[in-house]
Amino acid sequence: MLKENLVYDRPEGFTDTPTHYCPGCTHGVAHRLVAEVLEEMGVIDRTIGVAPVGCSVFAYNYFDTDFVEAPHGRAPAMATGVKRVMPDRIVFTYQGDGDLASIGMGEIVHAAARGENITVIFINNANFGMTGGQMAPTTLPGMKTSSSVNGRDVETQGYPIRVSEMLSTLDGVGYCVRRSLHDPKNIRLAKKAIRMAFEVQARGLGFSVVELLSTCPTNWGMTPVNSLKFVEEHMMPAYPLGDFKVSDAIKQIKI
């Protein structure tokens, strides 16, 4: 086989470990995109990842970089500690919506407000995956979960939080966008955004976060393919894709 024939191969940023994610879970896509970006930027050697608590608790098994494992929701604080003493390293957190938008809301908001020069990959799949599909702050109104069995009742269970819109109001945030992982085109756009987020950090241009609409086939009770449709038909209207904050300096970056 000629090497020149190769169109696509598993990224070097990945270890050989198969992921523990359910079949069709787009966590895997998000992981792969991060690994590809780290490889393309040539920063694997100086990257330190911060894993969350939730389905991606074992993220540290999959990336070929140093990794630390944070308590639930505290990844942005831990990343702050790492980055402040190792400013020349690339530091990123990878967090789900239970981790980031529920228990870790304080840590993410303040890391963003301080303009910590870290990158946050935020997976929004509208539920707590690891513990078996409970309601998350991002669960859609009326959506059934194992702790909102009749559908999320906004009268008693409140409304979803739009994290990107909220974070984009903070001056410390340099780059804040929402993308989706439900089809090839959007996956490519998501990768560009992840690349941009890491470029922002590499240039010291402040806090960068990419929210990714993601699937949870097992807990949604759908096939992987139908889960992708659910993202397009139900999540995208509630969580519109877009660039919520791209600072002027970042607009100049060409990749």
Binding site: R74, A77, M78, G81, V82, K83, G106, E107, V109, H110
Partner: peptide, 16 residues
Amino acid sequence: ESELGAINMVYGAACT
């Protein structure tokens, strides 16, 4: 932002 934040920043830096 809180003692929770502080101790986890300590945790992160300690890991380095």
